[in-house]
Amino acid sequence: MNLLTVSGSPHIHEDNSVKKVMYGVVYALIPAMLVSVYFFGFDAVRVLLISVAACLLFEWLIQKYLIKGPATINDGSALITGILLAFNVPSNLPIWIIIVGAFVAIGIAKMSFGGLGKNPFNPALVGRVFLLISFPVQMTSWPVPKPLFSSVVTDAITGPTPLGILKDGLRDGEKISDIMTQIPSYLQQLVGDIGGSLGEVSAIALLIGGLYLLLRKIITWQIPVAYLGSVIIFTGILWLANPEQFVNPLFHLITGGLMLGVFFMATDMVSSPMSSKGQIIFGLGCGIITVVIRIWGAYPEGVSFAILIMNALTPLLNNSFKPKRFGEIVKIDHK
């Protein structure tokens, strides 16, 4: 017989680990990854590989030489950051800009706070916003999709995203009905045959990934439902009030980075609130800020800013919205 082990209860553990959670997210990202490779071809592969490699490298270097802790690169979190960062940039972004983005995401947004679990903001989003503000031209010239096996040999044609077209059109005083003619059909938007960042183009693929996460219970319904719900209700009210001035909710749902943000970035465990109530408020806040930026802001897209702003409020939400306690409310039905 071996030496007896002594430890406190419980003596059994669920078959669950950080690595499993993280790789679950990676699996959920695969459909969107495949779609992006299909539409943007080799460029998409290039951006993905470089972003992931740079993120892993920075994590390894910082963990080894600055934090001097055990290696953490195989827990999968840097892998997710790498993929998400790649998903948030256009496919024709120069290599060095991607590396800068990876450095900001991992080095500044994550490791400077102490690594996994300690970052207040979603690292990939910080990386993206940094790039968006520092390199606005490169970050907003989206290549038009040129599917992998298509025979079109056009080289690097760029164009705006549907949201960009909308914003420019409205600025020039055009009516919604006129602008909509210039925008790809809803079907194209759903599948992803539109201009945009790598991973955000296909609402369907992201939705599949999101449902997978929900089924595996890696994320809970509160944030996605509150986020999507508030976007639908807010834009719906505006649309009903004036359909010529404001575009319909469906358009808002399937364009831009909303689906990516809703399922993969707002639900980031580390930077979102912990109680159900807090998560609902968080989702509502994200939705409202997103719509406000999309409709009245200077940028055509507001998902990343909305999530980052709500990330900043997370500690407050954690403190203010405690889970429902057992025995807090005494209700006795004398039957």
């Binding site: 071996n2 030496l3 007896l4 082990t5 002594v6 430890s7 406190g8």
Partner: peptide, 19 residues
């Protein structure tokens, strides 16, 4: 010498209460 193996948080306060 060790008679049992301890597998828990590295704090005397807890271990003292445990065993």
């Amino acid at each position: 010498p060790k008679k049992v193996e301890y597998n828990g948080p590295m704090t005397c306060a807890f271990a003292h209460n445990l065993y």
